[in-house]
């Protein structure tokens, strides 16, 4: 009997020795399998964690909580909605849709409701609460980016949040520039322009030192656009890029020799050699 127990222990030990490196290789293949549990999150979810541990129904649990969040949204129970979002994104950290929609609800809907809260007569408190919701949305989205660092869409969404809600213009430009670097689909053209506009806006309103960076960005985009189109299609390239470049060349007093649009030839549409 003792021999049998020893044999069982030996089998378990050997199995463990094989299992640990095997699992390490599997985890490397599938990063989404790792649950990101911060202390703050664990405090927040409490019993909700048990849902995560149901394993096979992790995704299903996330969906049901998403439905509960929807009900909370309809009934304007913002804190319940936020709590559900936290658990949902914890259970399915790779589902981009959850991060995107949850942050939008917090930063746009909940913040708007706080700014127009009829139960709060003090304007200062309304503004403060509005900012808190915007920050909550921003933090959630940033956590989404931490979990999905290569997702261009989340970077773009962060850009919109920073631009429209937090009014962090330079942050918005930087987030969109990151999105441009990561984007591999048809959105790239739109993102390139958006990043340029916001970079220029950041330079004009917050950091004048970045105006040159904005000019270089537009200039670079101008060349990229021409390089990616055959000469017969150059006329179809967005004229706004040319307008931005011309304006910035004048503002920055770029010497004629370095200009794309020299002063004496303001309508040039064919790019000179670099």
């Amino acid at each position: 009997m003792k021999g049998n127990a020893a044999l069982i222990a030996l089998v378990l030990a050997l199995a463990g020795a094989v299992k640990v490196p095997f699992e390490a290789s599997m985890a490397a293949d599938r990063p989404s399998n790792r649950l990101m549990l911060s202390v703050k999150m664990r405090e927040q979810i409490g019993q909700g964690l048990s849902l995560a541990l149901l394993g096979g129904v992790r995704a299903l649990g996330a969906d049901f909580l998403w439905v509960a969040a929807r009900v909370a949204w309809e009934e304007h129970r913002w804190f319940t909605m936020q709590q559900n979002f936290e658990i949902v994104t914890l259970l399915q950290p790779r589902a981009i849709y959850f991060w995107d929609m949850a942050s939008w609800h917090l930063a746009w809907n909940a913040s708007h409701a706080a700014a127009n809260d009829p139960a709060e007569p003090r304007m200062a408190m309304r503004v403060r609460n509005q900012r808190l919701w915007i920050t909550a949305g921003r933090e959630l989205l940033e956590r989404g980016i931490q979990n999905n660092p290569d997702n261009a869409y989340l970077h773009e969404r962060l850009g919109w949040l920073l631009h429209d809600k937090a009014r962090d213009l330079c942050g918005a430009a930087d987030a969109t520039l990151k999105a441009v670097k990561l984007c591999k689909d048809w959105r790239i053209d739109y993102l390139r322009r958006l990043a340029g506009y916001w970079l220029e806006e950041c330079a004009r309103e917050v950091a004048p030192a970045r105006l040159r960076e904005a000019y270089d960005y537009w200039r670079d985009l101008w060349f990229k656009e021409h390089a990616s189109h055959p000469p017969e299609q150059w006329d179809t390239i967005d004229k706004n890029i040319a307008n931005r470049i011309q304006k910035l060349e004048n503002e920055l007093a770029v010497p004629d020799s370095e200009r794309i649009f020299p002063k004496n030839k303001p309508s040039a549409s064919v790019p000179p050699a670099r």
Partner: peptide, 21 residues
């Protein structure tokens, strides 16, 4: 726990599917 028990979470690939991986 890690040494003795099999990791049943390793069989759940739903997250990978919905993440578009």
């Amino acid at each position: 726990v890690n040494w003795v028990l099999p990791n049943l979470a390793a069989f759940d690939v739903a997250d990978d599917l919905f993440a578009g991986l």
